[in-house]
């Protein structure tokens, strides 16, 4: 596990667990067994006693609190989020996947909101993503314009923000991934949920917090169909190693 060590120390990753999180174990498995990191769960009722314990934190997918009010809304108001905000403010790397993305939006760590998919249905399928900004910890091993294959599985992934905010997001290079076709063309047909500008993943201004609708943990081994998701985790690992 050479990659995952800093000197002789392992990289520490934390995974938040809310009631209703259900990709927590998938992310745990990927980070621990596929990438060899030192991984631990962070219970939603806890506070992060010491942010320095973690090199990065993943907010995994699922249906936190059943997504009963709005996707991610209740989790965004639970105890752990204050600590996560502090962690983000101090530069900690946070990746929110699917429901984790929704939670980041609801918590205000990222801008915008998620609406119900334009089909009004849950959509589970394989999509293609175009990389727009390789200058983040999550994409530093990728090239702008390259295309990744990854699964989505969500009911509310229709990203919305006001026009002005979209412009600001783009100006700040916070638009990281767009849904595209297999050849990298960003088309209406390639948009699985009605997202504005085919937005699939965005980051904050400091690039240390990213939300992503598709599931990189489900695309981390050949056996499950794609290893393109591994490129995102490997970027984070490499970034941390190079600090």
């Amino acid at each position: 596990m050479v990659m995952a060590m800093i000197g002789d120390k392992k990289i520490n990753a934390g995974i938040t667990v809310f009631p209703g999180s259900n990709c927590d174990m998938d992310v745990y498995y990927a980070l621990k067994d596929v990438f060899g990191l030192n991984v631990s769960f962070i219970w939603h009722k806890d506070r992060l006693l010491d942010c320095k314990k973690y090199h990065f934190i993943v907010i995994p997918g699922g249906f936190s609190y059943g997504d009963y009010l709005r996707a991610g809304a209740l989790a965004a108001r639970s105890g752990i989020m204050e600590s996560l905000k502090e962690y983000a403010d101090s530069g900690g790397i946070i990746l929110g996947i699917c429901n984790g993305f929704q939670i980041l939006l609801e918590a205000g760590l990222l801008g915008g909101a998620m609406l119900t998919n334009s089909s009004l249905r849950f959509e589970c399928k394989t999509v293609y993503l175009k990389v727009l900004n390789k200058g983040t910890p999550f994409t530093c091993m990728l090239e702008n314009g390259s295309v990744l294959k990854m699964p989505i599985a969500h009911h509310d992934g229709n990203y919305y923000a006001k026009n002005d905010d979209i412009v600001k997001l783009k100006d700040a290079r916070g638009l990281i991934f767009q849904y595209c076709d297999i050849n990298g063309n960003v088309t209406a047909e390639a948009n699985p949920n009605g997202s504005i500008d085919n937005i699939a993943g965005i980051s904050n201004g400091k690039f240390n917090v990213m939300g992503l609708m598709p599931h990189p943990e489900r695309a981390s081994e050949k056996l499950t169909g794609s290893i393109d998701g591994a490129k995102i985790f490997n970027s984070v690992i490499k970034y941390i190693k190079n600090i």
Binding site: L69, A73, L74, R77, E106, G112, A113, L115, Y160, A161
Partner: peptide
């Protein structure tokens, strides 16, 4: 304001 609605949308 804080919980039941998302003021953005």
């Amino acid at each position: 304001e804080k919980v039941l609605s998302n003021p953005l949308i």
